[in-house]
């Protein structure tokens, strides 16, 4: 029975490791200026945790294979070094790992959260709502009109609650259902929730951030590759959560300018 358990443990360890090593299911190509740091951290963590996982399963497998009950009353022995060796090894191994991951891992986090958006960043407001995302550009005047929750009228495409009758700044605001941005240009996203909690997740951008009702949360990034990607919601927000998505279209500066011009007509 011990041998069988050892074999099964072996198969589990190897079977789990193969898809990871082969990257059968893995992160898509990174298209952000900060993502390489997250990817590096991910690979290092994968290596350390992977080795820990496989090693623990293999040692467990070895021990259960070796130390089954022999019925002949063998005297129990102890691991050389005893508990002291185990504790020291655990603290040394995991402690180093913890320190390494904790200290070096903070850089990627700092890049996203501690740095302010560049001063020339393009400001875009994103509103999350049951169940979609809407994006607002300031328009030619460079100003966002104020929001009036009581003016929201979705049947009339007024998702943000703008009041162009009274607010001059709102009249030229551009509302889009897709996030269209120029490539290689810093984007400053102002995140606003209309109703309940949501989240903004673009795998390729290595960006994920919750929307919190009542808070306006800033977020910034730079996309480095032209293309069309999916924005999805990762915070349970109600029955249409599965269908809450939008497209991110990264365009060249010229294409973006042209798109913007089209929108403001």
């Amino acid at each position: 029975m011990g041998k069988l358990l050892a074999v099964v443990l072996l198969v589990i360890a190897i079977g789990s490791a193969i898809p990871i090593l082969m990257h059968t299911w893995w992160m898509p190509e990174d298209i952000s200026s900060h993502g390489y740091m997250i990817d590096k951290q991910m690979s290092e963590t994968m290596a350390e945790s992977g080795i820990a996982f496989v090693a623990a399963q293999l040692v467990l497998a070895g021990f259960v294979a070796m130390f089954g009950d022999k019925k002949n009353g063998r005297k129990a022995t102890h691991l050389p070094g005893g508990a002291k060796a185990v504790v020291i090894a655990a603290i040394a191994l995991v402690g180093t790992e913890v320190l390494a991951l904790g200290v070096f891992g903070k850089d990627a986090w700092a890049e996203v959260y501690f740095k302010k958006a560049a001063t020339d960043a393009l400001p875009i407001q994103v509103q999350a709502e049951q169940f979609g995302f809407y994006f607002r550009y300031a328009g030619p005047d460079g100003k966002f009109g104020p929001l009036h929750p009581d003016k929201i009228d979705e049947g009339n495409q007024n998702f943000f609650g703008l009041d162009p009758a009274n607010d001059v700044e709102s009249r030229d605001d551009i509302i889009a259902a897709s996030l269209v941005i120029p490539v290689n240009k810093p984007i400053s996203l102002m995140m606003h929730a209309k109703d309940v909690g949501h989240s903004f997740y673009v795998r390729e951008l290595r960006i994920q951030q919750d929307f919190v009702p009542g808070l306006d949360i800033p977020m910034h990034f730079t996309a480095t590759k032209v293309g069309k990607y999916e924005i999805v919601c990762t915070q349970l927000c109600g029955l249409g959560h599965y269908n809450m998505r939008a497209y991110l279209e990264v365009k060249s500066q010229e294409d973006f300018d042209q798109w913007l011009k089209q929108q403001s007509q």
Partner: peptide, 12 residues
């Protein structure tokens, strides 16, 4: 009665 689709916000 105003009718809306919660999944597709534009449907009214």
């Amino acid at each position: 009665i105003s009718v809306k689709c919660n999944i597709h916000p534009w449907m009214h």
